[in-house]
């Protein structure tokens, strides 16, 4: 079985967010970058577990510039076998999905795994776009996956509940919580990752359908209005008369 795991680079969750160039660019100065948590904790770890249980090769895929090599190495240390980086700016979801789709056409992966969304642009786009471009099933927001032969059983969130389903490979999944437990790379994994190959490819011809024109930061709150613990009626009155939410 061949599994492709797509990872992206995002600022660590505790990063201070600021912008440069007249609020048109993200300021990456002093920002620590990590593997997008959904990609690492859920998609990648589940892929590694499946490799351990049933045998599989796990290829790490990233669309990004050379500064993504650090997160790719970490993914290899956790247990990926090899990696491919498409050397391009990943600033439009369609462009990224088209790169992955064009690359994977010749490779015939059984499962393409992604995180449910990136925690920076919160798109939830790339997975569905890859499935649409390759015209293979998309199991979105999956929280469980088991496979026997070429039939996978999955659970996913849908509006109003959960769907339990089976699907034949090949397919695309976006992983959410419940899929696996996070793993910390061990020394052996880190050593082994040093010699695992990262193939760097030029981008496939494609197009970018969106771009960020500008960023804004939310207005600072003036600070909360404090209410005495003995006067809960005051809070109720404020929520009704001032905030108008009850």
């Amino acid at each position: 079985m061949k599994i492709l795991v797509c990872i992206s680079k995002t600022p660590d969750t505790t990063s201070k967010i600021s912008f440069t160039d007249n609020n048109s660019k993200f300021n990456s100065d002093k920002v620590q970058f990590i593997i997008n948590p959904y990609d690492e904790w859920y998609a990648l770890v589940r892929a590694i577990e499946m490799k351990e249980q049933a045998g599989a090769t796990v290829t790490i895929m990233n669309v990004g510039s050379a500064d993504c090599d650090a997160i790719i190495r970490k993914a290899l240390a956790i247990g990926g076998d090899d990696a491919v980086r498409i050397d391009a700016e990943p600033d439009d979801a369609f462009f990224v999905a088209d790169q992955v789709a064009q690359f994977s056409k010749s490779e015939q992966y059984d499962i393409i795994m992604l995180g449910k969304e990136t925690i920076d642009y919160n798109g939830s786009q790339v997975g569905g776009m890859i499935a649409g471009l390759l015209d293979i099933p998309f199991v979105s927001l999956a929280s469980k996956m088991d496979i026997a032969g070429n039939i996978a059983s999955l659970e996913r969130d849908i509006s109003g509940g959960r769907e339990l389903l089976t699907v034949q490979t090949p397919f695309v999944i976006s992983a959410s919580k419940g899929m696996a437990e996070a793993r910390i790379p061990n020394m052996r994994g880190i050593m082994a990752a040093r010699t695992k190959p990262i193939k760097v490819l030029p981008p496939f011809p494609s197009e970018k359908l969106t771009s960020v024109k500008k960023y804004d930061l939310p207005k600072e709150k003036a600070g909360p209005r404090m209410i005495n613990a003995d006067q809960p009626e005051e809070l109720v009155a404020l929520l009704h008369n001032e905030a108008k939410v009850i």
Partner: peptide, 20 residues
């Protein structure tokens, strides 16, 4: 949950930009 899953597939099929 459903819209999140459909919109990107649609975007790919129509080659349409998507803001989610």
């Amino acid at each position: 949950y459903s819209g999140k899953a459909i919109a990107p597939v649609l975007a790919a099929k129509l080659r349409a930009g998507l803001v989610s």
